[in-house]
């Protein structure tokens, strides 16, 4: 599929001789497909850079996209896809920027008079451009995946706050699905907060957890047991009616862990425990 040396230099000649014209036509045809979401000047400079990198690659030994001298071309392509991916363009809109070159090459070639050799050349050129296009697809997908991974991480950071409710009482309002990774983050945060604040009580509120299966229950139980090992007591609150039914249907046992229907109930429970302790101690001291 690669171009042979003669074809490579002919394409380089073609691109170099009509440089201005090609860049202009290229930018125009890309602009149509993007429907004005990118400024003309920006497009022009992107296309010009691509054109230059392609020329550099062709003049070197870079008739294959994976060749060493095509390094700059690859960098320009992946930078282009990356910026498009981050700005929310579709994969098609990104790849079209490269494929548009095909039409322009064909136009330029036919303007120079057609021959059988031209046809063979064009097939080879178009194979090269296809390669470039596929490369943008790959870069685009990779950029998108990175974006998604970043967002997932940010979500993880955002969605697990540990709040102090009262002197000696902290709470974790869980929102969203609880998978292993999140459960781990929640557990670590909660335990660290217990140490930092010296709170002997923690409330895990699962009002925002859409479904509780055996795995989620397992994660919660582990957190509670770990907190107990450290010397803090956990109360689970915010169990909705459907979830209570699911828990019973699945046969999940919470053992002697206190469960409450609402966060308010849990807080009242904890305050009663601490309040009674304090009251009893004071009473003893007085007597």
């Amino acid at each position: 599929m690669a171009l042979d040396a003669a074809q490579g230099s002919r394409l380089a000649g073609l691109l170099g001789d009509h440089a201005e014209q090609i860049v202009k036509r290229w930018a125009d045809s890309v602009a149509v497909s993007l429907r004005g979401r990118l400024s003309q000047a920006e497009l022009q400079s992107q296309v010009r850079e691509l054109h230059r990198a392609l020329l550099v690659a062709l003049e070197g030994d870079g008739r294959e996209l994976h060749a060493e001298s095509a390094g700059e071309l690859r960098a320009v392509l992946s930078e282009l896809s990356r910026s498009r991916a981050r700005r929310g363009f579709t994969a098609t809109e990104t790849a079209v920027s490269v494929f548009a070159l095909k039409d322009i090459v064909l136009e330029t070639m036919s303007a120079g008079g057609g021959a059988e050799q031209n046809l063979r050349d064009f097939v080879a050129y178009s194979a090269l451009i296809d390669q470039l296009g596929l490369f943008t697809f790959e870069s685009y997908a990779k950029a998108r995946e990175e974006l998604i991974a970043d967002q997932a991480e940010q979500l993880l950071e955002l969605s697990t706050p540990v709040v102090k409710l009262w002197e000696g009482v902290v709470a974790v309002p869980l929102v969203g699905t609880l998978d292993s990774a999140r459960a781990q983050v929640v557990m670590e945060r909660l335990l660290q907060t217990l140490v930092d604040t010296g709170s002997p009580y923690a409330i895990i509120d699962i009002t925002g957890v859409p479904a509780v299966d055996t795995q989620v229950a397992q994660h919660i139980l582990k957190t509670v047991v770990a907190a107990r090992l450290m010397g803090a007591d956990c109360i689970i609150s915010g169990i909705r009616p459907q979830i209570a039914q699911t828990i019973v249907a699945l046969g999940i046992e919470f053992g002697d862990i206190a469960t409450k229907a609402s966060l308010a109930d849990a807080l009242r429970h904890v305050l009663k425990l601490t309040g009674v302790d304090a009251a009893r101690r004071n009473a003893r001291r007085e007597s």
């Binding site: 335990l191 217990l194 010296g198 002997p200 582990k222 770990a226 107990r228 090992l229 010397g231």
Partner: peptide, 27 residues
């Protein structure tokens, strides 16, 4: 007990039955 230690013990399935725990010496 440190959080990391507590997590490890739970993962190992050791729950230290019969031992009372507290967050710090004062408690």
């Amino acid at each position: 007990m440190r959080p990391a230690v507590a997590i490890t013990l739970v993962e190992l399935g050791l729950s230290l039955n019969g031992i009372r725990t507290a967050l710090n010496v004062e408690r």
